[in-house]
Amino acid sequence: KLETFPLDVLVNTAAEDLPRGVDPSRKENHLSDEDFKAVFGMTRSAFANLPLWKQQNLKKEKGLF
């Protein structure tokens, strides 16, 4: 399991300012399950079932792209 970080560490943070080991294209993977659901309004599995373009739009909207 990946290390999780608080939302404010990941949202609207440039790649070079992210904690070590965080993939800038997969910031959402480093949210706790609770934060993930609070941000996206759905579970990880529901998010994973969305088309890629919709996932990317949601990530942009939430500052996690």
Rank of each mutant, 00 (worst) to 15 (best):
62 K>A: 14
17 D>N: 10
8 D>P: 06
45 S>L: 13
2 L>E: 08
50 L>T: 01
64 L>F: 09
49 N>F: 10
63 G>Q: 05
18 L>P: 04
7 L>E: 03
53 W>M: 08
62 K>S: 07
29 N>A: 15
27 K>A: 06
44 R>E: 01
12 N>A: 08
25 S>R: 12
12 N>F: 06
21 G>Y: 07
41 G>P: 00
13 T>I: 11
52 L>K: 11
55 Q>H: 00
24 P>K: 07
5 F>L: 07
23 D>E: 06
11 V>Y: 06
30 H>Y: 15
24 P>Q: 07
8 D>A: 14
30 H>C: 06
62 K>H: 11
53 W>A: 10
18 L>W: 05
30 H>E: 03
51 P>S: 07
24 P>M: 07
17 D>H: 10
11 V>Q: 13
48 A>C: 11
37 K>E: 15
1 K>D: 13
18 L>M: 06
36 F>D: 00
1 K>A: 14
53 W>Y: 10
36 F>C: 00
31 L>F: 02
22 V>D: 03
29 N>Q: 15
20 R>N: 15
5 F>A: 03
1 K>I: 12
47 F>K: 00
8 D>H: 15
42 M>D: 00
17 D>P: 05
45 S>V: 13
14 A>M: 08
46 A>T: 11
8 D>G: 09
41 G>H: 11
44 R>I: 03
56 Q>W: 10
36 F>Y: 01
63 G>D: 06
34 E>I: 10
46 A>V: 12
28 E>L: 04
18 L>T: 05
51 P>F: 01
31 L>I: 08
45 S>T: 14
13 T>M: 13
46 A>I: 09
10 L>N: 02
53 W>G: 08
18 L>S: 04
27 K>L: 15
35 D>K: 02
45 S>M: 14
10 L>K: 02
10 L>H: 05
22 V>T: 03
24 P>D: 06
29 N>L: 15
44 R>S: 03
40 F>E: 00
1 K>Y: 12
60 K>H: 08
33 D>A: 07
51 P>L: 01
50 L>R: 00
12 N>E: 07
45 S>G: 11
1 K>T: 12
7 L>W: 08
47 F>E: 00
50 L>H: 01
53 W>S: 09
36 F>V: 00
33 D>E: 13
2 L>Y: 15
30 H>Q: 03
40 F>W: 01
9 V>I: 12
43 T>Y: 05
40 F>G: 00
14 A>T: 11
1 K>H: 13
14 A>R: 13
